[in-house]
Design a binder for these strands. Structure first.
Length: 258
DNA sequence: TAGGCCATCTGGTCCT
DNA sequence: AGGACCAGATGGCCTA
């Protein structure tokens, strides 16, 4: 379900496919009326369309087609293009579902460009967060953890374990005021419970709720002196500042919370 | 009302 | 040859 379902903005990016293949409805289309009956040839496109309509295209075979066959061909192509765009929009909706912003009837759906930009920044933030987490694990557990990390550079760190350890770490508690904010404040209205269990962790309440202006999130990440990047409008991406849910079940309950 | 966003149509190009 | 992909054009809807 779209995040804006029931909101004032009811337009869906993936509306139900209504393929009306009846020639009547096709000819009732304004564009096609112009396409075939507009005598004004002031534009290049109009000119080419008139040529196409009269069967004067470059393709000989097409010129041999009857008017009805040309219409059928055009309908088929249009239908395929519609389906392609709907699939693209479905993928875009899927991306929106896993993006950390407030999903809800009162929240306007992210535009396509905003979705892409936010996704890019989110991926960068997660990457930085992961890198910082690895560093912190190395610091906390000294050489043994570091050695373990070196032996298995891509060792799987269970999110539940690491987040629990990090949230309890006294250094982390004292380093940043954001640490200590409760996950209960999170407002992640995921439309799909199964998808909500996707392997992403809600970074923070303010991040999810877009308390900061959206434009800030879409800017280029700020490159600060630290090893990780800070994004305008986002909380610090390092793990010290990310009070992650301590268990996967907690994450799941947060995700399906309406 | 202007501007943003979107769906759709369309022709061109590339690929299988 | 047919289909996928792309970009331009167009018009509708919504919001500030």
């Amino acid at each position: 379900m779209d995040s804006d379902a029931g909101s004032t903005c009811s337009r869906s990016s993936s509306p139900d496919l209504v393929v009306d293949d009846s020639p009547g409805s096709f000819f009732s289309n304004k564009m096609f009326q112009k396409y075939c009956h507009d005598d004004t040839t002031d534009s290049r496109a109009g000119q080419s369309r008139m040529e196409h309509c009269s069967g004067a295209g470059k393709n000989k075979n097409r010129s041999e087609l009857s008017k009805e066959e040309v219409q059928d061909l055009r309908l088929k192509v249009n239908s395929r293009e519609r389906k392609r765009m709907h699939d693209l929009n479905q993928a875009m909706d899927g991306l929106r579902e896993v993006m950390p912003y407030a999903h809800g009837p009162s929240v306007r759906k992210l535009s396509k460009i905003s979705t892409l930009l936010l996704a890019r920044n989110y991926i960068l933030m997660l990457s930085s967060s992961l890198e910082e987490m690895r560093k912190l694990v190395g610091d906390v557990y000294g050489g043994s953890a570091a050695a373990q990390n070196r032996s298995t550079p891509h060792a799987t760190i269970t999110p539940a374990a690491t987040s629990a350890q990090l949230s309890l770490h006294p250094l982390a508690q004292s380093l940043h005021p954001l640490v200590g904010s409760t996950p209960a404040a999170l407002q992640h209205h995921s439309p799909s419970a199964s998808l909500a269990a996707a392997p992403h962790s809600p970074p923070s309440a303010s991040f999810l709720g877009f308390h900061a202006p959206l434009q800030g999130l879409l800017k280029e990440p700020l490159h600060l002196s630290s090893s990780y990047r800070h994004f305008p409008g986002m909380p610090c991406p390092c793990t010290l500042c990310q009070p992650l849910p301590t268990t996967t079940s907690t994450l799941h309950s947060l995700s399906i919370n309406k």
